[in-house]
Simulated assay, not measured.
Amino acid sequence: MGLLLSGVLVWQASNAAFVGVTSNANNSWSAGTVNLTNDSGGTPMFHVTQMVPGQSGSRCIEITSASSVPVDVKFYTDVTALPVDDIRPYIDITVEDGTGGTFASCAGFTPSGGTEFTGTLQNLTTTRTTYANGLGPWALDGTPPDKLSFRISWQFHADAPPVAQAGSTPNVAFIWEAQS
């Protein structure tokens, strides 16, 4: 009888008369997006033929981020196989970031203050080859559309040696990459 009574007391103590429950339903997660485009329409910024010493030019491009999260944008290059008569050492390149200016025209381009790169095309294409060693970063806050403008200028050395005649460069890709 004592054993039965103690079993009932233990059962009653572990089966409470009052109960309270709460829950938090419908939890979910979704990833942000990172997206960059430019206004070139797939047209190369430069396709210069028959250059002569001292010749120069520049083009602008507008990069637009539709990223939904903050990102850092960097600029770097990629080249195809080098030609035998490579003239990259004789082409000076300047890369500036700023506002205004588009692929159609640099009218309205305003530099942000500092030049991001000045040197030869050879130096640019051998030192700025990945996101890790690219120019920048430019921080964007993830509120689309975030826009960056760049002006890239070039000049064929006025004192390019005769061996540069009929020379060429490899195809150079200018790459802007965003990472969050």
Rank of each mutant, 00 (worst) to 15 (best):
P83Y: 07
Q50G: 14
S40Q: 03
V71G: 07
T49R: 11
D97H: 15
V95M: 10
T43F: 05
D72Q: 15
T64F: 02
G100T: 12
S56V: 08
V73R: 00
T37S: 02
R59P: 04
S56Y: 13
R59S: 11
N38S: 05
P83I: 08
T43G: 08
S105T: 15
G108Q: 12
I87H: 04
V52M: 13
S56F: 09
A107H: 07
T94K: 14
D78P: 03
S56G: 12
D78W: 06
M51E: 10
V48P: 04
Q55S: 14
G113Y: 12
R88C: 08
D97Y: 12
T37A: 02
V73F: 01
Y76K: 01
D86A: 05
T33A: 11
P53F: 05
G42F: 06
S65I: 00
V79E: 10
P111S: 15
C60A: 03
T49D: 10
E62A: 10
T64S: 10
S58V: 10
D39K: 00
P89K: 06
M51L: 14
G57W: 05
C106K: 05
D85H: 11
V84H: 12
V71A: 03
G42V: 07
G32F: 07
M51K: 10
G42D: 06
A66R: 07
D97S: 15
T37D: 02
T99C: 04
A104I: 10
V52H: 13
S40R: 05
F46A: 06
T110D: 13
T110F: 09
C60W: 00
P89F: 04
G98K: 10
S68L: 03
D97C: 13
S58R: 12
G32I: 03
S58W: 07
V73K: 05
L82Y: 12
I93K: 02
I61H: 01
T33E: 11
T37H: 00
T80D: 14
T37I: 02
S58N: 15
V69M: 10
G32Y: 11
D92E: 14
V34S: 09
T102G: 13
E62T: 12
V69D: 05
E62C: 05
I91H: 09
T94V: 15
S105V: 05
V69N: 08
S105P: 06
D39F: 00
E62F: 01
C60Y: 02
A31E: 11
F46N: 08
I63E: 01
D39P: 01
H47R: 14
V79T: 15
A31D: 10
I63N: 00
I87W: 01
A31N: 13
G42L: 03
M45Y: 11
N38R: 00
T102N: 11
A104E: 14
T80N: 14
D78G: 11
Q50K: 15
T77V: 04
F46S: 09
M45I: 14
D86P: 08
P83A: 05
V71H: 02
V34K: 06
Q50I: 08
